[in-house]
Design a protein around this nucleic acid. Structure first.
Length: 729
DNA sequence: TTTGCTTATCTTTTT
DNA sequence: GATAAGCAAA
């Protein structure tokens, strides 16, 4: 170990450029490293850690923090690979994870039990929903914001330190009429959490901040324990995190922050890249170092990504130059539709693999998780296995939540939300009866006994008693967590089978997976916390290494691959149509595009489908993303499948259709639905008309939803009647 | 009081 | 096409 680090020390100067070297050798005090994409940000951070350890610093006095789980894992991994085993003793991870660990120890200071429960976002939403209902804010005719919107509002208020009415006025001006009700609900939500020992994601940060503020001895201890504080992806922090950093560095100001304002993509949850600007103000005497050399990619790719970010309205000026020579231009693939886009990507991936590129060195990135659904089926068909990151989490699935709520009720029978969910599983037991059961439990000395002795004449009573009996016996048994979960699954199974009769075997398998994970824990509360903070991936059982990666751009932050495909680069998808009305959000989408494009080391493919399937409206023409238009001609090479004439024609159709969007909504989708309800009544030889492809003749009716049609102008296409409309002439 | 049927609304990114 | 809310029937 000793020699490993010694060797490192000698070669530091050779392995790093002068800016990186200065940062690594920085002797303490506040340091801000502003760095472009691929400039070796994390590398610099990690080498500094290694250097400190070489010089005899205790690894456990170093705290490394960042925002996302993936970035945190990569950061710690790389630290270990550079600095050797000693670096594994470095403390760190996500801000949320760190706050959780601190709070477990100190929550009692602010009146929380050490075994407080962490709520994930859907828990928060459920609670808000329940309270809104109780306060009768929801109801017919009242255009009250949905629970999701409320949750975002509350989070924004918590993160920014603003009053809730300021948030509503500033971001949801159309809801100002409800401002009174929203404030009342916000207060009710906070009171409920306080009364029941619950913390949502924002509370983890806020409560820890409060402790740091109100108990100077705690912040003193923390700053004595962690003498070196380093934060990666500083542009993703919000004002709460910035303040937390300040308080944890108290007296020593030994903070290193690394970030890139051009890669700020989390402002939707309160992150503010101006934090970087304010860092020198917060820590007077900050030394600022810029890293402007790009090591990741080649000059042609860099020319393209520089052009993308050049249009950003606000940014620190950085002039990134490539360290690597050679390379080819990024390729723009213009596909007919998403099907063709998928075929192109699968084909290209196969070619790269044949040429000897490891599948794990290839990634496909997209704006939103559902954009890749089509590609996933194509990959499965081609026999290419992949790992998908981002999007729907396993713990969000209904059956998993059912089981989690069962466990929660066992630990805390008066957990009203979980109890409610569990009771509603029982046949002929609705909200009213659930309320009755809950009231009986609250009144009783022992809630679980009240449950197992519940009396009444209704049909559901016996099942309620059975559940109570089971929970009672389990809470007294000496079974380990895995065993307990097994028993819970046994109780849940009949409900699972009747509710999800079509796919319960798959769900049962996932429940077993969850049970297996739980078996690694001795403490149910720890297990539940981890599920909220570090949920297992849906296909965790599979071997992760060496596989093709499909990922949302957000989850790809900080990572790099030899070959990167960006798909769905059309208006409405990317930029997302939700961002269309806000210049600030368009700016964020642009930065997101920049982050995506800068993940490529060697080959970058930009894919644009001329037609996309839009839910409810069927196949729709799509214009290329405005970000593609912004890239100067000559910086990218354009490629098409099939004949160019066809593509041009569909392009024209797309432009024409896009000019009159009103015509696309309404009628067509209604007719499509009618066709779907009637089933597939098309027969070979039928003359039909399609809103986009024009007139054609039915070749074959494949099954209930698919028809193969030979269009006079557009050629043969297979259409899904549930996605598109087709009229018989 | 529960359940089944109809209608209206919305569809992102992460901790 | 999913989901939540509203309404009427069991």
């Amino acid at each position: 170990m000793e020699s490993h680090l010694k060797k490192r020390e000698i070669s530091l100067e050779r392995e790093l450029n002068s800016a990186q070297y200065q940062a690594v050798m920085h002797q303490g005090g506040p340091l801000l490293v502003i760095a472009g994409a691929g400039s070796g940000k994390t590398r610099t951070l990690v080498y500094r850690v290694a250097r400190l350890i070489t010089e005899g610093e205790d690894p456990s006095s170093i705290l490394l923090l960042t925002f996302t789980r993936k970035a945190a894992a990569t950061m710690l991994e790389r630290a270990a690979s550079v600095g050797g085993r000693e670096c594994l003793k470095v403390h760190g991870g996500t801000f949320h994870g760190f706050c959780h660990r601190m709070l477990r120890r100190h929550a009692h200071l602010i009146g929380f039990p050490a075994g407080f429960t962490i709520m994930d976002q859907s828990d928060s939403q459920d609670l808000i929903h329940l309270l809104a209902r109780q306060l009768e804010f929801t109801g017919k005719g009242k255009k009250f914001p949905s629970k999701g919107v409320l949750c975002t509002m509350f989070s924004k208020a918590a993160n920014s330190g603003c009053m809730i009415d300021e948030v509503v006025e500033g971001f949801y001006p159309h809801m100002t009429g409800h401002i009174q009700a929203i404030s009342t609900l916000f207060q009710a939500y906070r009171d409920y959490k306080k009364a029941h020992g619950l913390m949502d994601y924002d509370d983890l940060l806020l409560h820890w901040l409060r402790i740091l503020r109100e108990f100077p001895e705690v912040s003193q201890t923390v700053s004595n324990t962690y003498r070196h504080l380093m934060i990666d992806e500083y542009q993703d922090t919000n004002s709460v995190q910035a303040e937390m950093v300040r308080l944890m560095a108290v007296g020593r100001n030994n903070v290193m922050a690394v970030g890139d304002d051009s890669q700020s993509i989390y402002s939707f949850r309160g992150a503010n890249f101006k934090n970087i600007l304010d860092f020198p103000k917060m820590f007077p005497g900050t030394r600022i170092i810029k890293l402007e050399k790009n090591y990741r990619t080649t000059q042609p790719n860099l020319d393209c990504t520089n052009a993308i970010i050049a249009n950003a309205r606000q940014k620190f000026t950085k002039h990134l130059t490539a360290h690597r020579a050679g390379g080819s231009k990024p390729v723009l693939f213009v596909g007919m539709d998403e099907e063709e886009q998928a075929r192109f990507i699968v084909q290209s991936i196969s070619q790269f693999i044949e040429k000897g590129v490891e599948p794990g060195e290839i990634a496909v990135l997209f704006r939103a998780a559902f954009h890749s659904f089509g590609l996933e089926t194509h990959l499965n068909r081609a026999g290419i296995s992949f790992i998908k990151r981002g999007g729907m989490r396993l713990v969000d699935a209904a059956h998993i939540k059912d089981l989690i709520c069962l466990l929660r009720v066992m630990i805390n029978p008066l957990d009203r939300l979980s109890l409610n969910r569990v009771l509603l599983l029982i046949d002929r037991l609705g909200p009213k009866s659930a309320e009755k059961v809950y009231r009986a439990m609250v009144k009783a000395e022992s809630p679980l006994h009240a449950l197992s002795d519940f009396s009444g004449r209704a049909a559901y009573v016996q099942e309620v008693r059975d559940l109570g009996g089971l929970l009672l016996s389990l809470s007294e048994s000496s079974k380990d967590l895995g065993g307990l979960m097994g028993e819970l699954v046994k109780w849940y199974r009949p409900h699972l089978e009747s509710r999800y009769f079509d796919d319960y075997p798959k769900r049962l398998q996932e429940l077993e997976q969850l049970r297996a994970i739980s078996a690694n824990y001795s403490d149910a509360i720890e297990f539940l916390s981890d599920l909220a903070l570090d949920p297992p991936e849906a296909d965790q059982a599979k071997d992760e290494s060496g596989k093709l990666i499909l990922s949302t751009i957000h989850s790809a932050k900080g990572l790099e691959w030899k070959v990167v495909f960006l798909m769905g680069l059309c208006e409405g998808r990317f930029p997302s149509r939700f961002a269309e009305n806000s210049p600030d959000e368009i700016e964020e989408e642009r930065r997101l595009f920049y982050v995506a494009a800068t993940r490529a080391k060697d080959h970058l493919y930009l894919c644009y489908p001329s037609f996309i399937n839009v839910q409810g409206a069927g196949l729709m023409p799509a214009r290329p993303s405005r970000f593609l238009d912004e890239i100067p001609e000559g910086l990218i090479e354009v490629k098409r499948f099939g004949d160019a004439a066809m593509s041009r024609r569909t392009r024209e159709a797309a432009d024409k259709k896009a000019a009159s969007p009103a015509a696309l909504h309404g009628k067509h989708s209604r007719r499509a639905k009618t066709a779907h309800r009637m089933g597939n009544e098309f027969q070979a030889g039928d003359r039909v008309r399609h809103s986009i492809f024009g007139k054609g003749t039915v070749v074959e009716s494949i099954d209930k939803v698919r028809v193969k049609v030979l269009f006079d102008a557009a050629g043969e296409k297979t259409l899904r009647l549930d996605f598109t409309s087709l009229f018989i002439l």
